[in-house]
Amino acid sequence: MSTDTVAMPNTHILSTFEEALRSLRDDALMMASLTERNLENARKGLFERDEDWCNTVIADDEEVDTLEVQIDREGVNIMLRYHPLASDMRNVISTMKLSVNLERIADQAVGIARRSRKLISRPPADEMFHLEPIYQYAETMVKDAVRAFASQDLELARGLKERDRQLDQMNRSFAEKLTDLMSHRVDFIPTYMDLIFISRFLERIGDQATNMGEDTIYAISAEETRHTHHLTG
């Protein structure tokens, strides 16, 4: 098969299509930065025991929800008007799926903020210390998932699945530790329950970051990597 290179321009003939793709991507990156901000604010609310940050996260979730709807509408519009194919089609699909995962992450941040408000109303527990690395780990996964999408970094996207397994393990260990402690410190059971829930939120955030990585892999290489854990061990 001939592969002689013949120079072809890399911009789309239809400038409106190019603009629509750019707008979709810009909105997805904006949504990603708002979601990262909400997650960061939820962390401040939790570890600084600051109810204002918690309330901010809950209020700001609406921005993320609005962007999710907007991205959905833009994606459908592009499908309808331009019938994208090949990498354009994969990019539109993966951007729409990315926004769904970002919205869920923002929802988990709201869940963390709500639990944090309850925690703030009770005496602090020393075990918070063990939650911090889990939070940091999940937050970094989200940042890297967004970075992989933004810079089309295949290797960074591929690494997320393995990191998610590590996060799952951290969450399990934390939950076991607190469950053991419950029988010794009955008065802290409500606090431990909230911490276990927050850890669980973080574990779900890791899943969603992994999903974002899988969608980025599909956008870049058309490779299907979902549900392949049973193959890769």
Partner: peptide, 19 residues
Amino acid sequence: IFTNPGEKQTEDYITGRFG
């Protein structure tokens, strides 16, 4: 061909980056 073409020229043509 229409989801993941192997050649850049094919990709450019079917995505409308040809002209």
